[in-house]
């Protein structure tokens, strides 16, 4: 019961945060200088045309009215129309968001699948050669700019060796007709993975390194705890101690870190998409800002914020799932 109640309260807490995101987005976008009118109509619009455009987009209203209008629209899932692309914002986002999510999911999975075993092994074999090597690798991983890794990967694996493509990301459920060289869905899936590998490594390396470091230090700490000593005193084998007694506790700081890493991962996605010319949300938002496409900027920022909030909730819930102290508050 404790867990269910915690879940619900957590979800409810998300609402004010989302509201805050909407508000900040609105205010920030408002602060961007530039007259959308001149963008649309050219440098010297006639007063009449200008007034018409202003009225149409409600740009002549005072701040709070515009804010409320926006709020109402958002709730109705109407995020406006992109000035630059001339299509509804929601449409543009729907087009681009899955790609970025695909990339993010892939890189986090890569990071976790590599970091957790690496960190555990490092902790178990503390101060041996294996440990030192993995620590050095992790150190370099957090110190290297992700976009540079991308460039290097492209030079070596794309240009030099020709193993992987250097651009684009294909979603595995795209129909084969839209992709050259693909006749069946399986082909599409294969191509999709093929395109996914370099960007995943690019985005995921930083995460992997950070996660490895945390996993290692957390494991070391847990292995020194009293309850591990107790388990040993009762004859539990080292393997079981690692696998069961220590493992769960050691994941807690990692889960917290994953939540914190989300925001930097979203930024990293922007960079990765730029390097690999991927048409995802990251590039969309940059283009929107550069073009002062207000509706699009607000829409994309909002969606990004939402993704982040959902991510945080998922991590919080995972944490609560592992650590009963969070959700089960009672004590005698």
């Amino acid at each position: 019961m404790g867990r269910l109640r915690y879940t619900i309260s957590r979800l409810l807490q998300a609402i004010p945060v989302i509201l805050g995101v909407i508000t900040i987005t609105f205010l920030l976008t408002d602060a961007i200088p530039g007259d959308p009118v001149s963008i649309m109509l050219g440098p010297s619009p006639s007063a009449q045309q200008a007034a018409a455009i202003r009225a149409k987009f409600g740009l002549d209203q005072p701040l709070h009215i515009r804010y409320l209008n926006y709020l109402v629209d958002v709730i109705q899932l109407d995020l406006g129309t992109s000035l630059y692309y001339q299509v509804p914002v929601t449409e543009k986002i729907a087009e681009r968001l899955p790609i970025t999510l695909y990339l993010l999911l892939s890189s986090f999975t890569f990071a976790l699948l590599t970091a957790v075993p690496l960190g555990i092994i490092s902790a178990k074999r503390r101060n041996t050669a294996t440990d030192h090597v993995s620590r050095v690798v992790a150190l370099f991983g957090v110190s290297t700019p992700s976009f540079w890794i991308g460039l290097m990967l492209i030079i070596v694996f794309s240009y030099w060796l020709g193993y992987f493509p250097a651009t684009n990301l294909i979603l595995p459920w795209t129909s084969p007709s839209q992709i050259d060289g693909a006749s069946t869905q399986v082909d599409v899936i294969v191509k999709s993975i093929h395109h996914l590998i370099l960007p995943t490594i690019t985005l995921g390396t930083l995460q992997m390194a950070a996660f490895t470091r945390i996993e290692r230090s957390s494991m070391l700490e847990v292995l020194g705890e009293e309850y591990v000593k107790l388990a040993r005193a009762y004859g539990v084998s080292e393997r079981t101690i690692l696998r069961k007694h220590a493992f769960r506790n050691a994941q807690l700081p990692l889960i917290t870190l994953v939540g914190l890493q989300l925001t930097s991962a979203l930024g990293g996605a922007v960079l990765t998409e730029t390097v690999f010319s991927i048409n995802g949300m990251g590039r969309l938002i940059i283009t929107a800002i550069q073009n002062q496409d207000f509706q699009l900027v607000m829409g994309t920022t909002l969606v990004f914020g939402l993704v982040f909030v959902i991510g945080v909730i998922v991590t919080d819930l995972s944490y609560a799932y592992v650590d009963p102290r969070v959700s089960f508050e009672d004590s005698e």
Partner: peptide, 16 residues
């Protein structure tokens, strides 16, 4: 031979 530790707070694994 079994052992009982000093600090019962720390000696039990909190997640199980």
């Amino acid at each position: 031979i079994a052992i009982i530790f000093q600090d019962p707070m720390e000696a039990l694994n909190p997640v199980f």
